[in-house]
Design a protein around this nucleic acid. Structure first.
Lengths: 304, 304
DNA sequence: AACCTATATTCCATAATGGAATATTATGAC
DNA sequence: GTCATAATATTCCATTATGGAATATAGGTT
């Protein structure tokens, strides 16, 4: 438990101010201290780390390579201090919240149970949830408007980090009134002869489906309707004569209760993964960790 | 640029010591200061954050909820301080290294070019690379024996964070002496009639292949040989009469130079994603960020 | 060279810190 | 309940650290 020469946070804050304000005098002014104090703090940091952190370039000071590393550390420490104060304030005010964004299908079928479980286990925390299309959710994550997301596709954005949550599958289903109810495995060639109700083309589900179909040479299914809710599609199937590809998690209840039938296709199986996504700023959030813990614990119950 | 009441790092270190040593007197002893100084530092932290961080439970002190948050912050700050000192020491000693572990196929076909590019762009940095099976690599990441990994499957480990790197595909290929050289699309039923040389069953590639085949009802291909190197398999195909499933990135050169032929299969296309993986401790590593930046920049050149 | 801008250093008053000594609180044994 | 022990809290004072007015040094422009 020995830390050699711990820096003073005021000194790190001063380094940051000099860098970001552009000079010693400007930093002094903005921090309401004198210029000599600024210089001394910088020199004290140099001594603390045993290396020069800034060097004179003309009249101005510029970061050395070592100085850049210490500056990055300073930012980390000071930004987290601000976050910590926010956290403590939320705790004091009795609110500790997490802004969660999920795709529509996840929002309809899985989020309610998750939120109920979470509220039971962590009554002090609060979740603000929202549904949206994947691309928009990614943007919100990257711009700090959301803290954590549940996605049906792995985001490809340098600022978003993901963990695998669940395996899932897109399955072809129909209702009791359809001629394929109770049928055996159908050939791929039969796919073009069915009437489809599908989610909108910009939904994650459709993106995955369209790609899987294209991979096996099918460019376009005969789509009767595009509907924005998997629940609505399920009801339409149960009453009509259409088929649809839907996420397994969205139809499991109906399959179990025999209100929908899973039509198996020879030569086609569309698997995918569901993801937990967030940005670096939420890696130290206790409430995010608690929610993720619950997500992982509830994996079996949610999909059985 | 206002930070209200910045804590003293010595005070945070003291809080950590009290928590981890189990008491005020033990912390004092391990830090080589007196007990009153420990108490005072804790009281100073309380004042700094305006909330009680520890409370007396019997003879002992225990963290409050607010105290837990500050303790987590203390760990973050102090651990990063230690990392920073290591970083600065490496910089001083002229070494700044990154331990990278990759799967065998990636190691054979992509790593050399990546390492060369990296060495050119960042001569001050050094990469220590190693090849292994996915599971072992994950273990090394999680235990701190590796800093960053390139994987053919998304790891499912709570401590490992991933970013998507590249899309890839497993393709069926043969050499000039095979009867299927130059053929059109073959049906799935033909797959059982070929003689295969494949990677070992524990390789990521095989795991992906075996799963994809199982999904379409094929439990077992007639495998003549299992070989531990994709380069070796490529050479055997070019001289013999076997076929193999191989990653696209491993056979692209041979396809372009017409020394291998891509046999297309009706109803089967095996896509997958390649991943960059690391743990939290490497999220602030400049060299890791530099390497990832290069990985992302080299995406097109590597797979064309 | 003269002048202006920007950082560095010196000297001194003030503020902050650590510890010896003492006080307070909590627990366990009898 | 009493007493002894363990653990933390507080007081007083000597020592150390910090900030700023004043001054010195360095760099750039005219």
């Amino acid at each position: 438990m020995e830390y050699r020469f711990l820096p003073d946070l005021k000194h790190l804050a001063t380094l940051r101010a000099v860098v970001e304000r552009g000079g010693v005098s400007e930093a002094a002014r903005s921090m309401h201290i004198g210029q000599p104090a600024v210089t001394k703090r910088l020199r004290a940091l140099d001594a603390c780390y045993g290396v020069s952190l800034m060097q004179r370039e003309g009249r101005r000071l510029e970061l050395t390579t070592a100085g850049t590393k210490v500056y990055n550390y300073a930012r980390l420490v000071l930004d987290h201090q601000v976050s910590l104060l926010d956290d403590l304030e939320s705790l004091r005010a009795g609110k500790n919240k997490l802004r969660v964004e999920v795709t529509f299908a996840i929002g309809e079928h899985m989020l309610p149970n998750l939120l109920l479980s979470f509220a039971e286990s962590y009554p002090a925390y609060r979740i603000e949830s929202r549904m949206g299309y994947s691309r928009r959710i990614q943007r919100h994550l990257a711009t700090g408007l959301a803290d954590l997301a549940l996605l049906e596709q792995a985001p490809d954005h340098p600022e978003i980090l993901v963990q695998k949550w669940l395996d899932d599958e897109l399955v072809l289903v129909c209702g009791p009134g359809h001629m394929l109810w109770g049928s055996g495995m159908i050939p791929l060639s039969e796919l073009g002869n069915l009437r489809y109700v599908l989610r909108e083309s910009q939904s994650s589900m459709r993106l995955t489906l369209d790609k899987a179909l294209k991979d096996i040479g099918i460019d376009q299914l005969p789509i009767t309707m595009e509907v924005g809710s998997t629940d609505t599609i399920v009801e339409m199937l149960q009453r009509g004569r259409h088929v649809s590809f839907l996420p397994r998690f969205a139809v499991d209840d109906s399959l179990i209760s025999n209100t929908l039938y899973h039509i198996k296709i020879q030569g086609l199986r569309i698997n995918r993964t569901l993801w937990i996504a967030r940005t670096r700023s939420n890696l130290n959030s206790a409430i995010a960790e608690a929610f993720i813990h619950l997500l992982r614990e509830n994996s079996c119950q949610t999909i059985q």
